[in-house]
């Protein structure tokens, strides 16, 4: 299953990057969102996959059952998801503000600071 997910991750990176190379600001944001998904999945898969044994300690037990999933990548991904959300919310508002100011979604029109 790791192999398949590796392909999915590659696909997410590819489409994300493709969207980022478009001229539309909205596509850019969508692309970044895909990139974030890809990175999160990558960390998750990097810690290897385990089916159906979450790292929870049963009431009264001392440790999670043997063969339970690696909890650390999960914690890392959780942090990354939340951070990603914060960034994305800001990005969306930036996009909105940009559109209100410039009345365009075309990134090629946004070169006034450099030319």
């Amino acid at each position: 299953m790791e192999t398949i997910l590796a392909i999915v991750i590659g696909g997410l990176y590819g489409t994300g990057l493709y969207l980022m190379m478009r001229r539309s600001m909205v596509k850019l944001v969508l692309g970044l969102a895909l990139l974030a998904h890809a990175a999160n999945l990558l960390i998750f898969v990097g810690g290897r996959l385990v089916r159906g044994v979450p790292p929870l300690v049963a009431n009264g037990a001392i440790a999670p059952p043997d063969g339970s999933a690696d909890p650390l990548p999960q914690a890392l991904v959780l942090t990354a998801i939340v951070i990603g959300f914060g960034v994305q919310a800001f990005l969306l508002v930036l996009l909105k503000r940009g559109y209100t100011l410039m009345r365009t979604d075309d990134l090629d029109d946004m070169r006034t600071t450099e030319t």
Binding site: M20, L32, L35, A36, A38, A39, N40, L42, I43, F44, V45, G46, G47, R48, L72, P73, L76, A80, V87, L91
Partner: peptide, 16 residues
């Protein structure tokens, strides 16, 4: 953000 995504991926692989 691209840098962050690359950095994050690198951390994942490094941990892996």
């Amino acid at each position: 953000l691209m840098a962050s995504a690359i950095f994050l991926a690198a951390i994942g692989l490094l941990y892996g």
